[in-house]
Design a binder for these strands. Structure first.
Length: 686
DNA sequence: ATTAGGG
DNA sequence: CCCTAAT
């Protein structure tokens, strides 16, 4: 049984606080809408897989691999084209949608370390009931629909590659209703018995690790098929060679159920890759598995919208409130990577909303990506400022893999641990500009080009693990020590560590121009060039292994499907009142009296979004206190005694003249104004 | 949504 | 500034 806790997706998730938080007034007015972006983009998923497969085929062909893919060479040209044309899409989806798995090629596997072991391990379980269980989760129409959408989208995309004159393209040409076809193919609508057309087989290959079929029969595409040839190759055999022994191969590999002849096993290599990916995202519960592999990958993204403009205060308070961090999590018994909820996502939605995630994910694959709202607004008294409204940081998805026999409490703890490890393992923030990582911390925003309004929408933030585990020990029973590492190294796909490469390495991630970030820029923004960002490869591919944590004594994680969003609220940036603000406040209170803070706000702080009536009330409270204490005890910017005197006077007056709820208080105002409150001890009676 | 107060 | 109870 696999429990997948997708921290990123719509059906649940932990969210890291946005920075900064919107003023309460705004929040309370419902201006802070949460955006439920669909995290799983079917298209991206399939596209990714397809891209990977293509890449693999190319690789295999060119490297003369012994995987029996030689015939794939025929599609090489097309493959390349696709990679070039659609690589971004593929990549994007792939990185993020690892739930469908990603594998390594033979060459990669050779040098695999962590992941490899894990993969093997996973594979070893392939024949177990565990897999059956997992796959069985897929056995519902909802999930199938999801897959169908995937196929549909993929078909659309793939059609672009048709130029390559490969079957691949042909099989997915057009915007046919692939869902129907797929369903039919699966036997949802028909009794299966579909012939194994190349198209179908391809679909299967491109589908998720599990294959959905009717009649509760579960195919185990992830396992078997000792045959060296891949589905892809078979596919090509079908069309190129007209070979019809594919069915035999399939039957041999799958021992398919009676009715599901149509179900083909994904290629072995692909399976492995899928395994790898899946594995990498699992949090294995200790009970059954001695080796706790706590790995984490990039991907999961969850964001919620914050309306309020942020502050660019460098002295920003970095305190996070975490009390709500885990109180609303929910564990979902996943369908194997796709939540049924996500199924409802329309393709269009995937193509649009998910772009954000895709792009962000691409660039922050290893950690958490963020969507950023860039604001550029001048500060009245200061120079040109750049305001960033980070809608949210999204926690990478996390898959939980625990034995079926585990207890709920154990599951909760496992999730807790995973989350804790992810969030508490140490994160650092990365800045992405137009898809490139800005590594020079000493560069100014202006120099980097971040301040340029045109670049605001291509700005992204990532949360990167600040710690990483050394590869080998991933599967070992000994929790490896946390080793601080250079995130750049971690995030950059490195030849020396192919194991961590999850994404399609063929293309650079698309610029984050599709993040849908809103930009409030100001004309007085300083323009600058953006070419100062380094050309470092997009990060993304690292699998970050996290150390196993104690399984004991962890707080129970409440399961609440309803409130699947938990916000970690950040304390607002402290913004001391200026003298002028105090003056305005005092004046307003003198006229309106205490207890009418909303009016005060509207009267004197209408345009000060960061000053809520509560703030004003609080400030008045502190002012009164300040006025009563000795000057030596006062802190912060000194408030003119004259103002403090007025504060005391007004406070005294309004204390004796409670504001009537309805009537106006012009009289009171006049009185106050007439009363020279020069008395340090306040005015007791007017 | 506001107000009033404690923290 | 935050949090909450009470309006």
């Amino acid at each position: 049984m696999v429990f997948k806790k997708r921290l990123d997706h719509g059906f649940n998730g932990f969210r890291v606080p946005a920075i900064p938080r919107a003023p309460r007034s705004v929040r309370r007015r419902g201006l802070c809408k949460k955006v439920e972006d669909s995290q799983i983009c079917a298209f991206e998923l399939l596209a990714s897989i397809a891209g990977k497969l293509l890449q693999e085929s190319e690789s295999s062909a060119s490297s003369n691999a012994s995987e029996g893919n030689d015939h794939l060479a025929t599609g090489k040209g097309a493959v390349k084209q696709e990679q070039q044309d659609e690589g971004k899409s593929f990549k994007a989806g792939w990185i993020y949608q690892g739930s469908c798995g990603e594998g390594s090629f033979a060459s990669e596997m050779a040098s695999q370390n962590i992941s490899h072991k894990c993969i093997l391990k996973e594979i070893s379980h392939a024949d177990s009931d565990e897999v059956l269980e997992r796959n069985s989760v897929f056995n519902n129409s909802d999930c199938s629909q999801k897959v169908g959408i995937n196929v549909t989208d993929f078909g659309k995309i793939s059609s672009k590659v048709e130029g390559g004159s490969t079957h691949f393209g042909e099989s997915f040409d057009g915007n046919v209703n692939e869902i129907e076809r797929l369903n039919e193919f699966r036997g949802f609508k028909t009794e299966g018995a579909n012939t194994c057309s190349s198209k179908d087989s391809m679909e299967l290959c491109l589908k998720s690790p599990t294959v959905i079929k009717s009649d509760s029969n579960v195919e185990l595409p992830l396992c078997q098929d000792p045959a060296p040839d891949t589905c892809f190759s078979r596919y090509r055999n079908d069309d190129k060679l007209g070979s019809r022994d594919d069915d035999e191969n399939f039957s041999r590999c799958f021992k398919p159920s009676t009715k599901a002849k149509a179900f083909r096993s994904p290629p072995r290599v692909a399976n492995r890759r899928i395994r790898k990916l899946l594995t990498s995202r699992y949090w294995k519960a200790a009970p059954k598995l001695k080796d706790c592999e706590l790995s984490r990958t990039d991907g999961g993204l969850k964001q919620f919208y914050r309306k309020r403009k942020p502050c660019c205060n460098r002295q920003r308070d970095v305190l996070f409130k975490r009390r709500k961090m885990f109180d609303q999590s929910s564990v979902v018994i996943s369908d194997g990577g796709f939540s049924c909820e996500s199924v409802s996502n329309s393709p269009e939605k995937c193509m649009t909303e998910d772009k954000n995630d895709t792009a962000a994910m691409l660039n922050g694959a290893n950690g958490v990506s963020s969507s950023v709202l860039g604001h550029q607004a001048p500060f009245h008294s200061k120079g040109s400022h750049v305001k960033f409204s980070i809608k949210s940081f999204r926690v990478p998805e996390l898959f939980i893999d625990v034995p079926e026999t585990t207890t709920v409490g154990s599951l909760k703890r496992t999730v807790m641990e995973a989350v804790t490890a992810v969030l508490g393992g140490g994160l650092r923030v990365g800045v992405l500009l137009q898809g490139k990582k800005v590594r020079d911390d000493n560069r100014t925003l202006m120099q980097t080009g971040i301040s340029h309004k045109d670049n605001m929408d291509s700005l992204g933030f990532t949360l990167e693990p600040s710690t990483v585990q050394i590869p080998p020990p991933l599967c070992s029973s000994d929790p490896p020590p946390l080793i601080p590492c250079d995130p750049s190294q971690l995030l950059t796909r490195s030849p020396e560590n192919p194991a961590v490469e999850i994404s399609d390495p063929l293309t650079d991630p698309p610029p984050l121009t599709n993040l849908g970030n809103h930009v409030e820029s100001n004309d007085n923004t300083v323009s600058s060039h953006i070419d100062t960002t380094d050309k470092t490869e997009p990060d993304s591919k690292a699998l970050v292994a996290l150390p196993a944590m104690s399984m004991e004594a962890l707080a129970v994680v409440p399961l609440n499907e309803k409130t699947r969003h938990s916000e970690i609220v950040q304390r607002r940036t402290r913004r001391p009142f200026s003298v002028s603000e105090v003056e305005a406040l005092v004046h307003a209170v003198e006229e309106l009296g205490t207890g009418r803070w909303r009016d005060v706000k509207l009267r004197s702080f209408e345009n000060a979004d960061h000053r809520t009536y509560v703030d004003l009330k609080d400030k008045w409270k502190t002012l009164v206190h300040t006025a009563r204490i000795s000057p030596q005890q006062r802190r912060g910017e000194p408030v003119p005694q004259e103002l403090l005197d007025r504060v005391l006077a007004a406070h005294a007056y309004w204390s004796q003249h409670p504001v009537k709820q309805h009537g106006k208080h012009q009289a009171g105002t006049l009185k106050i104004m007439e009363t020279p409150a020069a008395d340090d001890n306040g005015v007791e009676g007017i």
